[in-house]
Design a binder for these strands. Structure first.
Lengths: 192, 192
DNA sequence: TCCCCCTGAATGGTGATTCATTCACCCGCA
DNA sequence: TGCGGGTGAATGAATCACCATTCAGGGGGA
């Protein structure tokens, strides 16, 4: 057969299946069928079932990190950086509802087992947000008394929750719309 | 014997065990041992393993909803309401790290199966936040162009993520501290 | 022919759930 | 007061379906 990247096919299949049934209710044989390979083939590419989930996570985070870096590369205005960051996150998520579900729901449960192993990409992601804020504070665009780590967490939590809401229930306003609104919310707050 | 609190004992034990191992890696027999009952006894009180998780969720949400309602009852200033809401959420979470883990991590994965069944308490919780915002808009305390549903989601996502961070890594700043900071963040935003 | 993928049926461990049995307690009758 | 049968909560060993993982073999390219 020598199909191009068989590993890739398995990862994609896993995202589909995991999103549909949840990780623990998914059978390896389902992933195999969806990928069009034999059950045993999975084990030529992955150590075991959980390893598939971890690789999905690592791959996806690497992709979105790279994408964010490209998107932010030429920007200087902190507010604009934040807006683009959020837009890029939402766009990435919007490209695959299944991936959004896996990243927001399934990965969380195994994060406990990945303790120490490879939460690094996630830390990097938070770090990107924190840096945007720090830059904004330094440049004077942002208030000087914000706690960048805490705000980064809060912002991530907010956009992650919005992604999940979007992934679960179709029909809510387009993510691109939410992007503008939520950016405005972070920038100016609620206060009249 | 007819321990009136046997159900309670099982629920508490479940929270402890689920927080430690994750729902799918927890054995019913572990919960039984932790609760000091026989395996079979569990099934006198719960339909099956997942039912335990659902009941934990329903019970906990009912408790925190009631608590929020009490806490907010006599307040009128919208900003103060928001501050107290967040404080109450953090206080509830801070009382039990295990419960925080179960509510932020374990329940999510089953939300997919609860589709339609009993996400209602969660919807109510979001509704409380949205109402605070709406009231603020009406009273003129908050900007008139905020989207209350979206902001409510964002705020919930943010405080949920902060709760999770707190539950996972001990040693971070006290939640009570985070409460003030994050409220300020929501109120005034990042902009200088 | 040799080697490398790949296959998918068979295996073995696991753990949720069941159910026959025990036991504590209650009630009515003598 | 003492006795006997009835009730149902509680038990926990046994069941059994399920599924991750393995591995003996197949086939095609060099």
């Amino acid at each position: 057969m020598a199909q191009p990247d068989k590993r890739r096919r398995i990862l994609d299949a896993a995202v589909t299946v995991f999103a549909q049934n949840g990780f623990y209710n998914s059978k390896v044989s389902q992933v195999a069928r969806e990928a069009g390979v034999a059950d045993g083939t999975i084990y030529l590419y992955f150590k075991n079932k959980e390893d598939i989930l971890i690789q999905v996570f690592i791959d996806s985070m690497a992709a979105i990190l790279a994408r964010q870096e490209t998107a932010l590369a030429n920007l200087t205005d902190p507010a604009e950086k934040l807006r683009v960051f959020i837009a890029t996150h939402f766009n990435s998520v919007a490209e695959s509802r299944a991936l959004a579900e896996v990243l927001t729901v399934e990965v969380r449960q195994s994060s406990k087992f990945m303790r120490g192993t490879d939460m690094k990409p996630f830390g990097q992601y938070l770090g990107m947000i924190a840096r945007i804020i720090d830059d904004g504070v330094v440049s004077g665009a942002f208030r000087s008394n914000v706690d960048s780590r805490l705000s980064a967490r809060a912002i991530f939590g907010a956009i992650d929750e919005l992604s999940l809401a979007w992934a679960m229930e179709r029909g809510s306003a387009a993510l691109s719309d939410a992007c503008e609104r939520v950016t405005a919310f972070f920038m100016t707050g609620l206060e009249a």
